[in-house]
Amino acid sequence: MGRLGPTEIILILVVIILLFGAKKLPDMARSLGKSARILKSEAKAMKSDDQQSAPAEQPAGAQDQQAAPRTIQAAPGDVTSSRPVTEPTDTTKR
């Protein structure tokens, strides 16, 4: 059941050509190839970013000492506040 013979492959190709038309198939294959290249390059970029950021990470205790307050901006169109809200930082020592 898992193996496709030449007859099944030809039948599948004929159905695909009938569904999409012979003119659209090259465009579809081209855009599929572009998508695969973009996906591959993004995966490489994410992997290299992870490898670069791993040695730069600090131990858990060092982050508490250097924590700075973060500013949270209101979403566009939010009428509750037009000023940035500053989060309180944890200043307790462990």
Rank of each mutant, 00 (worst) to 15 (best):
A45V: 04
S53H: 04
V15G: 00
Q65P: 00
G5E: 04
R37H: 03
A29C: 13
L13N: 09
V14S: 07
D49R: 09
A43R: 09
A45C: 01
Q52G: 00
Q63D: 07
S35D: 05
R30W: 05
A56R: 14
A68H: 03
S48T: 06
L25K: 02
A36T: 12
A22P: 00
I12P: 00
P59E: 06
L13Q: 14
P55T: 04
D64P: 00
S31T: 09
I16A: 12
P26R: 03
G33I: 02
P59V: 08
V15K: 12
I12A: 14
Q65F: 12
M46R: 10
G61D: 15
K23N: 08
G61M: 11
G5I: 04
L19K: 12
D49H: 05
A62S: 14
M28S: 03
I9F: 04
V14I: 14
A68N: 06
E42V: 04
L19Y: 05
L25S: 03
Q65L: 15
R37S: 01
K23A: 13
I17K: 10
T7Y: 02
G5N: 15
K23M: 07
S41F: 05
F20L: 14
K44F: 01
A45R: 10
S48W: 02
A36S: 13
I16L: 15
K40A: 15
I16Q: 10
Q58H: 04
A67G: 04
K47M: 11
Q58W: 00
A68G: 00
A43V: 06
A29D: 05
A60P: 02
I10N: 11
D49K: 10
A60K: 08
A54Q: 12
I17P: 00
A45N: 03
E8P: 01
V15L: 15
A62R: 10
S31E: 15
D27N: 14
M28D: 01
S31V: 11
S35E: 07
K24R: 10
S31Y: 14
E8Q: 15
K44W: 04
I16M: 14
L11R: 15
M46N: 11
A22R: 12
G33A: 07
S48H: 01
I12Q: 03
A56M: 11
I9T: 10
S41N: 13
M46Q: 08
K44H: 02
L11A: 15
D50W: 06
A29G: 11
L13R: 09
S53A: 12
G5T: 08
L39G: 12
A67Q: 15
M46P: 00
L13E: 13
M28E: 01
G33N: 11
G5V: 05
E42I: 08
L25Q: 01
S31M: 14
S48M: 05
L39H: 05
Q58V: 09
D49F: 09
A29W: 11
A54H: 03
